[in-house]
Design a protein around this nucleic acid. Structure first.
Length: 577
DNA sequence: GCCGTTTTCGGCCCGACTGTTTTCAGTCG
């Protein structure tokens, strides 16, 4: 899609403009870039149909940007951008990612010292050429060097699965202090983004000093970056930072709303406040004139949203991706919750080299309050995973049947379903005979080999599998692994269309894959394609990963009815049939 | 550069902190 290419250029122009000291235009370019990215149709097609006039219909695109798009479509180049690249030949993204460096300082560094890249920056900072510059100084130079070091070691963001448990543990420990009146996670961690830069924790209290002292003494705290009254930042041994903020109880709700973000959501909510002659900040919602603001809300998020005329918006929806409009029209989705999940259908046992027996997995599933679990071991193509062949699968079928019979006798209302995770081979066939697949309760199929296939070939392969009537669920449909591996060459629109046509259920895999990702979940929901949230547990403890899949589903606006393992076992089996 | 049943001109979110100043610019969230 050319939309993404042009959006990227607009983002870069925005940065150039900032460095050039131009006000407001960067915001316009960025807004245009965002709406291009969100666009379903290719701008090229829109242009072909209606020329620049049609481009003006896109929000955030005016006369000039419509012409810029036209220019790109015609010559693959945008003059403004080319000129800026010559005028300011900098690796801007790289330099902006250094903590404490913004556009203004980058410009000075370029003009005075010729800094064009991270490497240049490191060189001049080490030679102490930065500190003497006007507006810089010793500390700034040191911060720059530390910023570079951080970028090199951590690459910025970690996956939510690594951070959330540690952050929650810190919250639990802080809760033991009687000075704390309220406490919550905030920021992207509360919005459950798949990767997290740093963790934010918000506390309501009148005694910040004691809380900060206790906080920096907690086990796992490696280094204290800064300790203040309202904010303290530490580096954890696990390799990420936690910011702890303390606010007054009367502002806890507005502060939580503010620190949860996202930034774009906050900008939108503040604009709504302004439209209503109100002011929204982290201290509350205020009415009046600048000389005499009167606080009308702030203690809880609910009352903050209510004061500006909105219903409560779940944190996972706060990305300014339409939730504001939905809230204004009372059309917010009732998004799925963890407690809606009645079972997990992608679980491995020790039959394929998983850690726990079927019985142990079943016991853990019962402890979670599930009504059923599906055992879906790997099949024979995956030698390294001890994949099961037809004979073993049939034997396993008998073993599971016996467990169910025992439960029935004991009047235990729990069902073990039998499936398997077959491999979609290069030609689109799967590695277990159809007559055996037909005997199972359900069949999962996934791509586990030849991941680098060209798009056309890969799609033909997946299409053939989805058209196999025995295959119910497409496992980890895009193949990505967070922070590790990008998706296969796929055409997601085509996958959605095939899912609709064949009734194939798309998996939301809760392991480190988090696949489908949130934006795809939202698209699937819009197309009324059914999904299932599974953990892909290879040991019983991993059944707890369900929360992450549910979080992605929530971020994708999925409701209970979009996810089939919110059904009771009868409803589920009917659906799978 | 975009946008508009208050506007085709004058807005564009808001506040704290840092480090550098001596009243504030730049950066961050």
């Amino acid at each position: 899609m050319r939309n993404q290419e042009i959006a990227k250029i607009f983002y870069e122009i925005a940065n150039f403009l900032r460095i050039d000291g131009v006000d407001f235009k960067p915001y316009a370019y960025e807004k245009a870039a965002i709406s291009l990215e969100a666009l379903k149709e290719d701008v090229g097609d829109i242009y072909k149909k209606g020329g620049t006039k049609a481009l003006l219909e896109i929000s955030g695109i005016g006369k000039n940007l419509a012409e810029a798009i036209e220019e790109y479509l015609k010559n693959k180049k945008i003059k403004t951008f080319e000129e800026y690249k010559k005028k300011l030949p900098l690796k801007i993204d790289e330099l902006l990612s250094v903590e404490s460096l913004g556009p203004r300082k980058i410009k000075i560094l370029y003009q005075k010292l010729g800094v064009k890249s991270l490497r240049d920056l490191e060189k001049v900072a080490k030679k102490h050429k930065v500190a003497p510059l006007f507006g810089f100084g010793e500390k700034t130079e040191k911060n720059i060097l530390e910023g570079i070091k951080f970028l090199k070691t951590s690459q910025g963001r970690m996956s939510i699965g690594k951070i959330l448990p540690i952050a929650r543990d810190v919250v639990e420990k802080l809760k033991t202090l009687k000075e704390i009146k309220q406490i919550s996670l905030a920021g992207s961690l509360r919005r459950k983004k798949e990767t997290i830069g740093d963790a934010d924790i918000l506390v309501a209290s009148d005694n910040s000093e004691k809380i900060m002292d206790y906080f920096i003494s907690l086990p796992g705290v490696k280094k204290v970056w800064a300790k203040g009254d309202t904010k303290t930042s530490v580096r954890m041994e696990a390799g990420f930072d936690i910011d702890l903020r303390v606010v007054k109880e009367k502002s806890f709700g507005s502060a939580l709303q503010y620190f949860t973000g996202s930034k774009d959501h906050n900008i939108a909510t503040r604009k709504i406040a302004i439209d209503k002659d109100l002011k929204l900040s982290e201290y509350g919602v205020f009415r009046g004139e600048s000389a005499s603001w009167r606080m009308i809300a702030g203690k809880t998020e609910e009352e903050v949203y209510k004061a500006i005329g909105l219903p409560y918006i779940e944190p996972e929806l706060r990305e300014n991706e339409g939730e504001i409009e939905a809230a204004l029209n009372n059309k917010l989705p009732k998004i799925i919750e963890l407690k809606d999940i009645k079972g997990d259908l992608h679980c491995h046992s020790n039959w394929d080299g998983g850690k726990n027996s079927i019985e142990e997995m079943v016991k853990s599933a019962m402890d979670l309050g599930y009504e059923y679990i599906g055992i879906s071991d790997h099949t024979k193509f995956l030698r390294i995973e001890n994949g099961l062949d037809e004979n073993k699968l049939l034997k396993q079928h008998e073993a599971i049947k016996k467990i169910n019979e025992k439960f029935e006798k004991q009047k235990i209302k729990f069902r073990v379903l039998h499936g398997c995770e077959t491999n979609i081979l290069n030609d689109g066939s799967v590695d277990i005979k159809d007559e055996v697949l037909a005997q199972l309760d359900y069949v999962i199929a996934g791509v586990h080999s030849s991941l680098k296939m060209k798009k056309k070939q890969m799609m033909a392969r997946i299409e053939k599998a989805m058209r196999n009537p025995n295959i119910d669920i497409l496992a980890h449909p895009t193949g990505r692994i967070v922070g590790q591996r990008d998706e296969y060459q796929i055409d997601f629109d085509k996958i959605l269309q095939l899912a609709k046509e064949t009734g194939t259920i798309l998996e939301i895999n809760s392991s480190s894959r988090l696949d489908l990702r949130d934006i795809y979940i939202r698209r699937a929901k819009n197309e009324r394609v059914k999904m299932i949230i599974n953990t892909d547990a290879h040991k019983k403890e991993q059944l707890d990963l369900m929360e992450y899949g549910v979080s992605m589903a929530r971020r994708g606006w999925a409701e209970k009815s979009d996810i089939i393992n919110t059904n009771s076992v009868e409803g589920l089996l009917k659906y799978l049939k």
